[in-house]
Amino acid sequence: MNLKKPVKLLDENGLRTDGRRPDELRPLKIQVGLLKNADGSAYIELGKNKIIVAVYGPREAHPRHVVIPDRAIVRCRYHMAPFSVDERKSPGFSRREIELSKVIREALEPAIFIEEFPRTAIDIFIEVLEADGGTRTASITAASVALADAGIPLKDLVTATAIGKIEGKLVIDLNGLEDQYGEGDMPIAMMPSLGQITLLQADGRFSGEEFEEGLKMAINAIKKIYRVQKEALKRRYIEISKEVLESE
C-alpha cells in the first residue's frame, strides 16, 4: 500500500531521512541485567526505540494444564506502552500485539534448550517504552540477551533486523517514517553462528531478486548487531565478577 509521502525518503545523495546510508544501522545500545526481580533482563535502544525485556524462569508452570512433560513451555508477551506512539495506544492487547507475541516466541524458542527443563515455564515479557519502527526485531535482539542473562542455556543468541524498500531501493533497519511510507518491510531473525533463520515476515512488494538480495543484506547487518549483543553480555559478566570479588 503506497500512501502519499510527506517527505522524500531518499535524498539526491542517496541518504535517508535520518541521514543514514541504505546499509547503515541506527545507533544501537544494549544494557544487560538492569532489573532486580527478573531472572534475566535487557534494555535496548535502537534509534528512538526504547524497549525493556524481562525473563522469568525456568519456573513452575501455571496453570498446571499448560505443563508439557518432556520440555519447558515458552511464553511471550509483547506489549506497547500507551505513551510509546504518537496517538495514545489503548493499554489492552491489540491484535497486532497478539500476533507479534506469537512470532517473537517462535523466533526465540528454537534457540532455547527447552528439553533441559521439563514441566517448567520460561516467560518473556517485552515492554515497548518508545516505538519508532522495528520494535519486533529490536525486541527479539534484546530478549535473547535477557534469556542469556537469566542463565538459560542457549544454542545461540537470536539477532534480528528488518529489510525495507524505499523509493525502489533496499535499505536496512527501517525507522518509523520509512516503515509507514515505504514500499515493503521484511523483518528477519536468525541464530547468527548457526546460520538458522527463526523469523521471517514480509509485507509490501519484493521481486524474487530483491528477496534474495534483502536476505543477504540482513544477514550482514545481523552480524554487526550480534557483536553488540555479545559485548553487552561480556560487560555484564565483568560487573558480576567484580561484585563477587568485592563481596568476598
Binding site: R105, E109, P110, G195, L199, D203, R205, G208, L215, K216
Partner: peptide, 19 residues
C-alpha cells in the same frame, strides 16, 4: 511473480538456502 507477503510459523528454523 512478486512477493507480496511472507509469514514463517512454528518454532523451527530455515537456512538461507532453504528459504
Amino acid at each position: 511473480d512478486n512477493i507480496t507477503g511472507i509469514q514463517k510459523g512454528n518454532p523451527g528454523t530455515f537456512t538461507y538456502g532453504e528459504l
